[in-house]
Design a protein around this nucleic acid. Sequence first.
DNA 1: AAAGATTGAGCCGTCAATCTTC
DNA 2: GAAGATTGACGGCTCAATCTTT
Lengths: 129, 129
Amino acid sequence: VIQRIERDLQAEGLPPLGWYDVLWALYRAPGRRLRINELAEQVVLSRTGMVRLVDRIEAAGLLRREPVPEDRRGAYAMITEEGVKMLRKMWPVYARGIEALFLAPVGADAAVVRDALERVAERDGSNED
Amino acid sequence: VIQRIERDLQAEGLPPLGWYDVLWALYRAPGRRLRINELAEQVVLSRTGMVRLVDRIEAAGLLRREPVPEDRRGAYAMITEEGVKMLRKMWPVYARGIEALFLAPVGADAAVVRDALERVAERDGSNED
DNA sequence: AAAGATTGAGCCGTCAATCTTC
DNA sequence: GAAGATTGACGGCTCAATCTTT
């Protein structure tokens, strides 16, 4: 399913799914920004990998780094206006893929599947929401 | 779940999960061997990627390439005795991970989840079994 | 010394081009 | 010319080491 959605995004000249995850995490965060560390944790990526990913998304102008007033070691990643626009462009493609490739075939069992997979996720102790 | 199992395998000095998929596909194939192409299709990997993967597994002595009598372009990948032994060493770790991290939390909903995800897989037209 | 972020090295995957055989 | 396999170039992730700040 992921592969198919990636292909759809590429076909429309849009960024890969990983970018959406990052931008969405920033968008819904308080102040539209998060530390690199928090971002890496939410998206299940190493801190190192997140630094590279933030580099690329920043180069595309969809987010920008900002200093943290009370801690001069750290940096926020903050979504830009262009980032929000990109989020809105990507979402329809994403949603369409999820609906057609996943939700439709799951059908009436959706609630059972969701609960079961939530139990799997909780077992690990990763991210919630 | 995959990540956790990968960690368990690494902790015991065993190869990554991708190797298991390849070895298992060879083990159950007629004659204990498959063409690179067939292998790539079954494991959902590009033919190019499969060539590299076969390179590494062959270097470890778990499979060997063999010529195809009736088609001198092609090459079989055939599992070795060491490969079969490795399969037997990896399976307990794999099985334990699946049981503890996935099957246990899914519990009584297993049948519903399996049927639902099979419908998702069929929708695409990839591999069956 | 520990934490946050970054950089360099290495692994693994894909795409495009090549070589051999059909 | 097309198919099977391979190789080179490149993208993206992880590990270990480094730099700065606490």
